[in-house]
Design a protein around this nucleic acid. Structure first.
Length: 769
DNA sequence: GATTAGGAAATTTTT
DNA sequence: TTTCCTAATC
């Protein structure tokens, strides 16, 4: 592509001719080189899946540094995730050595915005020590405000308001700039938003959205400050540009100088966070937004085979709003993408589990395989099956470490010790563990705090002196205050990990967890992990700052296990073999996406499908079920429209799947379905519908009813009668080993395992020992 | 102030 | 079906 461009006598061209090619430029293809060497002016790099995006990004930074165009601290490089930032830093260090440490402004949008905000906090009414609230704190705060307004928080949930506020902040709207009115709580949303922002100021806190929003206020109202940053950042680099929201876009505009050395890298076909405020438009409009912008397309794919690429490209071609690009690969051919219909969700899990074992025999490792689902509720079927067959697996995603209740409780203690004014932390743990300080007392404390304009802890001190509370409550509060005081004194000369241990012990938190036989052990383990994680930080302050911005924990990876994750979670990853189950209307594309966002929502779903397919290096396998158990009800499913949209040439429909439990009628339908000259369409046939009707005619049962046709039954879950267990009995479990039954609830057993601690397991997964 | 029973909801989630 | 949250009861 660059070959066909008219050659302009640029300095870099001359330099290129004169000097030998630096090592780091070797091995780049012409487009990649162009993306690296076009350092001046606005540049959009459209990087298709698997085209070496990260390599280009890091090489570009290295190039700018190596050629002396800028020093490390004059570069602004923004990513979306901490993981991406970390990876970029590592790879640059690999390229240019330790001087990469000088890249002060390489980080996520939020961490860089937080840095800037700390320097100018007073301009938006905060102190530079402000705390960053997470979504849970945010919702609790909003709930208080709503209750103070007498709003029915069942009819209008704090969560809905939180997402509204988030939405507004994503668009860069302060309460004053908010256009129009909302239906929410009879038009009170706007005033609630204003009240919330005020409350945040008194708490010296801000939420995630504020980090960007306050930056916008500062940069647009203080020209001198904006100018200072524009001069500082000589080169700007933005990763995943397709996922930026309006606020981030405005932020970039404010930081981009007139020389406009801004390079945005992204792929409009991989924009999958629209529901979180991402604007594909940002990338589609780039050339208009940054006059004189160049565009480089990276279209050579180094990851997938021709068939996978063909299937993905054919599918995404159905989207209208895209810049368009044609991925190609030298690795033509490869296996076709297999598409199979199965009877139900269980059959799908069985099929995939069996194929995992088969693939393993051909030399693939478990960790080379991934199951990518649309929504997390689909994961359970696979987990159950994998446990049964002892296939090691890892669920990526799930509840995040720092969001677990016990971790947040521990943090609340630490926050309250660090700053007595942290009312949210106070509220969270005044009565955790139970100290006999009930809801009414807490409300009294908070009321006094609010009316007197003091912190909750200050209110506590006052109330201890007064007689407004019962003597018993006063004693409890005094005890709590005394503990806090003691810990705070201790904090000055105790390393923070030990401090945390002391607090958890002395507060009775550990004992409280020990008393919980069900989840206590897991939680205590998590707390241990927390103390471990704290070791890596110089101070409590540094640690707390870190966790507020980094919601994830370094995952211990490296073990050989099948990865189960959502399609969203899979972005940026690749696997030799990828399973894509649940391609059914309503599931994928998700009905809700379509209901809420119509055609736009559908296009985003299609991009999600594209992301899923392009994760595969050698082999992608799509499946769909005729029947699925959704919230305990059997639902007839139609194959996803995306199945139809796959180009027939790259796809291999399989009809041998009857073995996996489909009734003949369903198999016939599948045969018909796969026979069509245009791919798909067959599910309109009477046979498919009949099969579905039969399935739905019965209400909730373990399997969809099949008239008189034997299906392959091998699941102990269906075979094993329950009620054969008794408490105290010794059992063996594939994954957790030996243990003793503590309790029985229906088909679930509470088992204290010798090694793995107490777990709830399905009875069919254990055998008598 | 703690326990329990009933009812509504149930995507995706980089910070 | 399960899970979480609120309201009613001890």
């Amino acid at each position: 592509m660059s070959d066909s461009l008219p050659l302009s006598p640029r300095i870099s061209d001359l330099a290129r001719a004169a000097a030998p090619l630096p090592d780091y430029l070797r091995g780049l293809n012409p487009e990649q080189r162009e993306a690296v060497e076009t350092t001046e002016g606005p540049l959009l790099v459209l990087a298709g899946a698997g085209t070496g995006k990260t390599r280009v990004l890091t090489t570009r930074l290295a190039h700018i540094l190596a050629t002396g165009k800028a020093r490390p601290w004059e570069l602004l490089a923004v990513t979306f995730t901490n993981k991406a930032a970390r990876e970029m830093r590592e790879r640059i260090t690999h390229l240019i050595g330790p001087s990469a440490e000088g890249l002060r402004w390489l980080g996520t949008f939020h961490s860089i915005a937080a840095q800037i905000l700390r320097r100018h906090a007073e301009l938006v009414g905060l102190r530079s020590s402000f705390t960053i609230l997470d979504t849970d704190d945010q919702e609790r705060l909003l709930k208080q405000l709503m209750e103070a307004e007498g709003i029915d928080t069942k009819r209008w949930t704090p969560r809905t308001l939180a997402s509204l506020v988030d939405h507004w902040k994503n668009r860069g709207w302060t309460p004053a700039k908010l256009p129009g009115t909302e239906d929410f709580a009879n038009g009170k949303a706007k005033s609630l938003y204003a009240a919330y922002q005020n409350r945040l100021k008194t708490l010296n806190a801000c939420d995630f959205g504020d980090l960007l929003l306050h930056n916008l206020t500062i940069l647009s109202e203080h020209a001198d400050i904006a100018e200072e940053y524009r001069r500082r950042f000589r080169y700007i680099l933005v990763d995943e540009y397709q996922d930026t929201n309006v606020a981030q876009y405005l932020w970039l505009r404010l930081l981009t100088s007139s020389t406009g050395n801004v390079c945005c890298v992204g792929d409009d076909d991989q924009s999958i966070y629209g529901w979180r405020g991402a604007e594909v438009d940002n990338i589609l409009r780039f050339e208009r937004d940054f006059p004189g912008a160049k565009m480089v397309r990276l279209e050579r794919n180094y990851r997938s085979t021709g068939n996978i690429l063909g299937a993905a490209s054919g599918l995404i071609a159905g989207n209208r709003d895209r810049l368009g690009k044609t991925l190609w690969t030298e690795d033509e051919g490869g296996d076709k993408v297999r598409v199979r219909g199965v009877w139900d969700g269980e059959a799908e899990a069985r099929l995939i589990a069996d194929e995992i074992e088969t693939a393993r025999k051909t030399g693939l490792k478990y960790k080379d395989m991934a199951v990518l689902v649309r929504a997390s509720f689909q994961m359970r079927a696979f987990e159950e099956r994998f446990v049964m067959l002892a296939i090691p697996y890892t669920v990526i995603g799930g509840p995040r470490f720092f969001e677990r209740a016990e971790i947040r409780d521990a943090h609340a203690y630490l926050r309250l010790i660090q700053s007595e004014d942290d009312d949210l932390a106070f509220e969270r743990i005044v009565n955790v563990p139970k100290r006999g300080i009930g809801d009414t007392s807490v409300q009294k404390i908070l009321h006094l705090a609010r009316t007197a304009g003091i912190s909750a802890m200050a209110a506590v001190h006052r109330l201890i002196e007064s007689d407004e509370l019962q003597a018993r409550t006063r004693t409890a509060l005094a005890g709590f205050a005394r503990d806090l005081h003691r810990w705070r004194t201790l904090a000055s000369d105790t390393p923070h990990p030990q401090l945390t241990e002391v607090i958890l012990e002395e507060s009775g938190y550990t004992d409280m967890q020990k008393a919980d036989r069900l989840t206590g052990q897991t939680r205590l383990d998590n707390l241990k992990e927390l103390v471990q994680a704290m070791q890596g930080f110089d101070s409590l302050q540094a640690y707390l700052e870190h966790v507020s911005l980094v919601m994830e924990m370094e995952r211990a990876s490296g073990d050989d296990s099948v990865q189960i994750m959502t399609l969203h979670g899979a972005k940026g990853l690749e696997f030799p073999l990828v399973f894509l189950p649940g391609w059914e209307e309503g599931v994928f594309p998700s009905q809700r996406s379509i209901d809420e966002k119509g055609e736009k929502g559908l296009e985003e779903e299609r991009r999600l499908a594209y992301v899923g397919l392009t994760r595969a290096r050698r082999d992608a396998r799509i499946s769909f079920a005729a029947n699925r158990l959704v919230y305990g009800r059997w639902t007839a499913q139609m194959p996803s429209r995306f199945v139809d949209e796959l180009p027939i040439d790259n796809v291999q429909p399989e009809s041998e799947t009857g073995y996996y439990g489909a009734a003949p009628s369903a198999r016939q339908v599948q045969d018909r379905w796969s026979e069509g000259t245009t791919f798909g369409g067959g599910y309109d046939s009477p046979g498919w519908k009949r099969a579905q009707q039969r399935a739905t005619s019965g209400s909730a049962q373990r399997t969809p009813p099949i008239d008189g046709v034997a299906r392959r039954i091998e699941s102990p879950a269906t075979a094993a009668p329950s009620g054969q267990w008794s408490r105290g009995e010794r059992v063996f479990h594939q994954k957790f080993g030996y243990g003793r039954i503590q309790g029985i609830e229906g088909n679930k057993l509470r088992v204290a395992f010798d090694k793995a601690g107490e777990k709830k397991v399905i009875d069919s997964f254990v055998e008598k020992a």
